[in-house]
Design a protein around this nucleic acid. Structure first.
Length: 532
RNA sequence: GACCCCAUCGUCUAGUGGCCUAGGACUCCGGGUUUUCAUCCCGGCAACAGGGGUUCGAGUCCCCUUGGGGUCGCCA
């Protein structure tokens, strides 16, 4: 059978970086296996799940190239199917109603009494539990309520599903047997009878474990008695996550569920639900979570937590995709910068890490810089232009000029927002770094040399080579060492100490702008060494 | 607190009992190219959490401790 994986987000307006990584891993897995990658939109939270939120989600996926097969399934369209399953469970005795009739009753999934015969359930050990005298032992159709004794002697309340203690025997302080589950189960299940004991001192039962083989984490198991029956339909009639999720996965014929680590504990119950519903459970793979730069789980306040944050800072989708795929996974060799095709080819779940991975923005930035450097010039120009549009100086600029600046700056750009530092190319007079001015421009010789350069600029053809020659000539005339004028000139013309080569910068700027700035600097910034 | 999972440089990772004197990448620090910066090239700092076993041999297997994470809802 062909593999079917899915991404099942609940759109809330922004797409979390951890979620999109789950989507990427699902996508990579599906594409590697030549299977299908499906999208299911869990849009049952009417408050938060607006059309805009869905649009944002789709947009983020499209941006990252996460194309999906078949039509997206909207969970809100599946109520009938989900309710039908709940009703069926009710009819079969796998579920019961709970709560006050007047308030409306919830539907609760009962961990099936025959669970011990499932192939995913195995005997584990004999268990004895000492009970706390303060809390009564109550056994009814919803399970076994009891309290064991904590290390400090306090009562710790617990609840187990009935089958978790299927051969339960209850003893009083004298060792007398008060209750034996196999004798009472019919009365409980069919008659709704309940038992309560104030004098119960000890429980004894044979423990069974539900287990499954996680593709990433290996064999995992959980005692059946640590599981409680779970609500699958709320008293207001709305299906709970567990039911909706399983129901829709059945509908979409999902074969592999790849999701965050936070779902591991749900898996046991979901498997049991599948079993009760008479379906084979899918394979599961639980991804380690990703954590922020502080090593803590991402919270909404972290900043840089959403796909949109990265996009608006000018990370390229290929770079983010590449980086995220390397968080918690590696191809097994030294490759890091990998194309989508290479990633698809190399991706297997068994190489996924078992530990939470910390996001390192610097590494992402480095990778992004590499992707930017590889962009062909026209792509870079047009993408940079979009970011320039956001700048106050971005409105009426010469496109030819912009292109020349972009060519100069491409290898110096790590993120597209870096174009904000190109301002000095496009304003009449740049913003001057005062400290740099003091350091670079306040020398008398410098002022003199700049004046000479200014004069020469008037007459030369304004090209890189001639500009360089003019500068050399000026320094010689004034008696400054070759190259010593470059930085002062840079400050005078761009306002800052770093940037592209000064000859190129000058050439791009053009005679008119260069001279205007030189005049400004000479007249306003080149005061003698006279700072008070 | 209970249950479960995990543990290699600061970070992402390679490593599946001998090929490990623990490799790569980011960061940082040197050096080279260069008119500054960036790119590019060369070099350096830096890790098997601790303690016990098993074994001729352990980063690799087992146990304990410590540390981290996850889960304990009519949230998803």
């Amino acid at each position: 059978m062909s593999i079917r994986a899915r991404f099942a987000p609940s759109p809330t307006g922004q797409v979390h970086i951890g979620n999109i990584r789950v989507a990427i891993f699902n996508w990579l897995f599906a594409r590697h296996e030549n299977g299908r990658f499906l999208l299911r939109i869990e849009d049952t939270d009417r408050e938060r799940c607006t059309p805009e939120a869905i649009a944002t989600l789709l947009d983020s996926m499209h941006w990252l190239g996460l194309d999906y097969d078949e039509e997206a399934l909207y969970q809100s369209t599946q109520f009938d199917r989900q309710h039908a399953l709940a009703e069926w469970l009710l009819e079969q005795g796998y579920a019961y109603r709970s709560g006050e009739e007047s308030q409306g009753t919830a539907i609760v999934f009962r961990i099936p009494w025959e669970a011990r015969s499932y192939d995913c359930v195995h005997y584990s050990e004999q268990v004895d539990v000492q009970l706390h005298a303060d809390e009564p032992l109550v056994i009814d159709a919803t399970g076994v309520n009891y309290a064991h004794i904590s290390r400090k002697g306090k009562p710790v309340k617990e609840k187990s599903c009935l089958v978790g203690m299927a051969d339960l025997a209850v003893y009083d302080t004298d060792g007398g047997c008060l209750f034996y589950m196999p004798d009472a189960i019919d009365e409980i299940l069919e008659g709704g009878k309940s038992f309560s004991f104030d004098n119960a001192a000890r429980l004894s039962f044979s423990r069974h474990n539900v287990s499954y083989n996680d593709i990433i984490k290996g064999t995992l198991s959980k005692p059946l008695d640590s599981l409680k029956d779970m609500v699958i339909v709320r008293s207001d009639g709305s299906p709970v996550f567990h039911l909706a999720n399983v129901s829709d996965d059945i509908t979409q014929e999902i074969t592999h569920i790849i999701r965050g680590d936070d779902h591991v504990e749900n898996t046991y119950r979901h498997i049991l639900l599948y079993k009760a519903l008479q379906y084979d459970p899918p394979r599961y793979a639980h991804l380690p979570m990703i954590v922020n730069a502080q090593g803590k789980p991402y919270s909404k306040r972290d900043g840089d937590a959403f796909v949109g944050d990265f996009r608006s800072k000018g990370y390229l989708p290929e770079a983010l995709f590449n980086y995220l795929s390397l968080l918690g996974w590696s191809p097994g060799d030294d490759r890091e910068k990998m194309s989508r095709g290479e990633l698809v080819e190399a991706f297997t779940l068994d190489r996924v890490q078992h530990t939470p991975a910390q996001v390192d923005l610097r590494k992402l930035e480095h990778l992004n810089g590499q992707y930017i450097a590889e962009l062909n010039v026209q792509d870079f120009v047009s993408q940079a232009r979009e970011f320039a549009d956001e700048q106050p100086w971005g409105d009426n600029i010469d496109e030819k000029q912009f292109q020349r600046v972009a060519e100069l700056m491409q290898t110096r750009t790590k993120k597209l927002v870096d174009v904000e530092s190109w301002a000095h190319f496009f304003r009449d007079i740049p913003e001057y770094d005062q400290q740099a001015c003091r350091k670079m421009l306040t020398n008398a010789e410098t002022r003199q040399a700049l004046s000479r350069v200014r004069e020469k600029f008037q007459t030369i053809s304004f090209e890189e080579g001639e500009i360089e020659q003019a500068i050399h000539a000026a320094t010689e005339e004034v008696g400054i060492k070759q190259g010593k004028l470059n930085q002062p000139l840079r400050v005078a013309v761009t306002g800052r100490t770093v940037g592209a080569g000064i000859y190129e910068t000058l050439a791009v700027l053009g005679r008119e702008a260069a001279c205007r700035r030189l005049d400004y600097a000479i007249n306003n910034l080149c005061g003698e060494d006279d700072d008070e």
